[in-house]
Design a protein around this nucleic acid. Structure first.
Lengths: 128, 128
DNA sequence: ATTAACGTTGACGTTAACGTCAACGTTAAA
DNA sequence: TTTAACGTTGACGTTAACGTCAACGTTAAT
């Protein structure tokens, strides 16, 4: 089992230590303590990675918290498990929507780039 | 040229009229006026669509504003055009990162679903 | 022994992206 | 004609996700 300081993980994932402590008060990380000092495990590291990736995909911290819970369904009862499965399906739909959004946006970037290039060559022709 | 009221577009894109006015003060929409009343064009509608899609992809309003500007590079000078091309490239990188994030997250959802199903069948076996 | 680097808590500030509410004008139907 | 539905501006409130700062403790090197 690896041991990380708050700074180790903060630097690895390019967040501040303040952010790490904030995630803890929000129930997203659960480091152990040695005296006052926080000690993070591999599990905490994985959770942090999920949070960061979630952020890149536009998820809120509350949503990332749900994602983390999906990761570890031990101790859930039948009702909770069904709800988890629903959330998984919901997440899948959201991701598929995002893929479609990205596809469309890429096409639009193609257009935008073409228009930019055209405008540029127009300017260059005027120069000479 | 189509004409839309604030409510038309608000309902179509499921935002409030307050939000539409807010986007205007932020320089993202530019409806014409008839008296006091706002009249939105097809162009405004496209802009709103870009904003909404941007939000689904986790972009801020400031970023969506940039996207809108990419759409319409007329009147930009050479320096601005180069910067636009840079932004386009930057957006592409961001989108590719998102696709990779989605791919990984889908694999993790596969895992999570499997674990949920396993936990469920365990519970069902205990029942009987 | 004293600095420097790192850790802690707690209180308060900040920004984005709206929501809420009051006070008002315009048009359309009953 | 008055009430209902829709529009407006302006001021202020709210939430998420941190940043900033003060005041303090611990360890490690000079």
């Amino acid at each position: 089992m690896a041991r990380y300081t708050i700074r180790d993980l903060a630097e690895e994932f390019d967040v501040t230590t303040r952010t790490m402590r904030f995630y803890e008060t929000e129930g997203l990380l659960h480091p152990k303590r040695e005296g006052q000092t926080r000690i993070y495990s591999d599990k905490d590291r994985i959770h942090l990675k999920l949070i960061i990736r979630g952020k890149r995909l536009g998820f809120s911290l509350a949503e990332s918290k749900e994602l983390i819970q999906l990761y570890d369904p031990k101790g859930a009862n039948q009702i909770q498990l069904s709800r988890l499965l629903e959330k998984i399906a919901e997440r899948r739909r959201s991701l598929m929507q995002q893929i479609e959004d990205i596809r469309v946006m890429q096409l639009e970037l193609d257009d935008a780039e073409r228009r930019c290039q055209e405008a540029l060559s127009l300017l260059n022709n005027q120069d000479h």
